Simulated scan of single mutants.
Amino acid sequence: MDDTTSAFSSLTISAIREHAVEALRQQWDHGLRRVRWNWPEEREIVKMKRPSYWEMAIWHRQTLCGLVLGKPSQKRSRLYIEGIEGNPSPHPLKGKITPIALLASEMYANLIGCEEVWLVEPDPALLDTYARAGYHLRLPNKLLKKVFGLKSFATKEL
C-alpha cells in the first residue's frame, strides 16, 4: 500500500462538534494558520442564518486535518462555501484537504439540488488549485459588494 492509499484508508469525515473544536485547539499550530477564523463562532453564525448549513471535519485517525463550513442559498440553487481550512501542522492528508473539501461539497450540493458551488472570498494563493478543480473567479455584483462587503467568489457549475 502506498502513502496515499494508506492516508485515505484512515480518512473519516464528521460534523464539526465539540470533539473537532477541541482537536482544533490542541492539534493545530495556531502560529502557522493562514486563516484567523474562529470556527465555533463562525459555525454558530452560519447555523443561525441557515439551519440547513453544511459542515465537515476531515480526520486521519485521531488527527483533525481540515474543516469546511458553508450554506445553501435560500432557493438552494447555490452552495456557498464560507471557509475551508487545513491543519497547518504536518499530517498524512497535507495537500489533499482542499480537493477532499471541494469534492464532498460538490457531492452535497448535487444531493440537495444546487446548480453551482460558490467559494466565498477564496484564498488568492489557492486560485490555481480551484481553477484545476473547475472553479472560475467571479467578482460580486454591486449588491453583493455593498450589502455583504464581498470582494470575490470562485464558482463552479455542477
Rank of each mutant, 00 (worst) to 15 (best):
P140E: 01
P40S: 01
I16K: 00
V68A: 08
A109Y: 06
R33T: 11
E41M: 12
R34K: 13
L119Y: 03
A57H: 04
Y80T: 02
Q27Y: 02
N38D: 11
L137V: 15
H60P: 04
G70W: 00
R34N: 11
L11Y: 09
R78Y: 10
K96R: 12
T155R: 04
T4A: 09
D29V: 10
Y53F: 14
R25N: 13
H60F: 03
K151Y: 12
P124E: 15
Y53R: 03
E157W: 06
R34C: 07
K75E: 09
I97D: 07
G113K: 08
T4P: 00
F148H: 14
L67Y: 08
V35F: 07
D128F: 15
A101C: 09
H136P: 09
T5A: 04
H136V: 08
A15S: 06
T63L: 02
R36N: 15
V120L: 09
G83K: 15
D2S: 10
K71N: 12
L69K: 07
R34I: 13
R138N: 08
Y130Q: 05
Y130F: 14
W54A: 08
S10Y: 05
V68I: 12
H136M: 06
K145G: 07
N38L: 12
T4R: 06
H30Y: 03
Y80I: 00
E85M: 15
L24P: 03
T12F: 05
Q74S: 10
A23E: 07
D3R: 01
R34H: 13
E55R: 06
L127P: 01
D2K: 01
P88M: 03
P72R: 00
A104S: 15
R76V: 04
L24V: 06
L127G: 04
N141M: 08
T129R: 04
C65V: 13
E157K: 07
Y80W: 12
A57W: 01
F153R: 02
I45T: 11
E18D: 10
F8M: 09
R43W: 02
H19M: 04
R25Y: 07
T4M: 07
P88A: 02
D123M: 08
R43K: 03
E157V: 14
S10E: 04
V120N: 09
M48E: 15
L24S: 04
S6T: 15
G66I: 06
L139G: 04
H91F: 07
N141H: 11
K146G: 07
F153A: 00
D3I: 14
T155G: 02
D2G: 10
E41L: 14
N38M: 12
R25S: 14
N38Y: 10
D3W: 03
Y53Q: 03
K75M: 09
V117K: 00
S9I: 00
V21I: 09
L69S: 06
K71E: 14
W59F: 05
R17G: 10
L93P: 12
I13S: 02
P40C: 00
L137K: 14
W59T: 03
A125K: 11
K75F: 07
Y108M: 12
